[in-house]
Amino acid sequence: MAKNTRRMSNEINASSMADIAFLLLIFFLVTTTIAQDKGIQVLLPPWSEVEPDPTKLKSRNVFAVLVNADDQLLVRGELTDISALRERAKEFISNPTRREDLAEDPSKAIISLKNDRGTKYDTYVQVYNELKAAYEELWDEVSYRLYGREYDEDMPQAMKLAVRQEVPFVLSEAEPTNFGEEQ
């Protein structure tokens, strides 16, 4: 009898193995980040054969960003570094000090982006990203003022619309120039 119990104790109890396995499975399920597709969402304007009317805009309401084939930025006639673009765009749209040369009202502000066919795609995405970031930050500010929360995609549609009505995203892209060398 004593001999028999000794032999039994030699066998490892495997009944908890499944639990351990499931624990590991759940751990990996929770911690693994699946490679996700992310990107900057853009809505293109519809194509029209007729040339757009050169609508007259007050120059104070237009924030012109030009990018040349050497990936340099010209913002309202000044050579600017990309790191300063976001702040300048924000200041232009919101115009907190009511300056005469900046936008009359956020709803009237227009950002005009023009690049060259030789501009690097990377630079273009960076510039677009900064301009979008400027708007996102302004939306956050408006959202905090109105609802006391950050602006995000999951908030109710009505709130989003209200925020975006106050500061609408207006970014017009002009036909690119053709000076630089294309690869």
């Binding site: 900057i40 853009v42 809505l43 304007p45």
Partner: peptide
Amino acid sequence: RKANQLKINYSA
């Protein structure tokens, strides 16, 4: 734009 596919996403 000509094909009326206006929703795009610059993957990054």
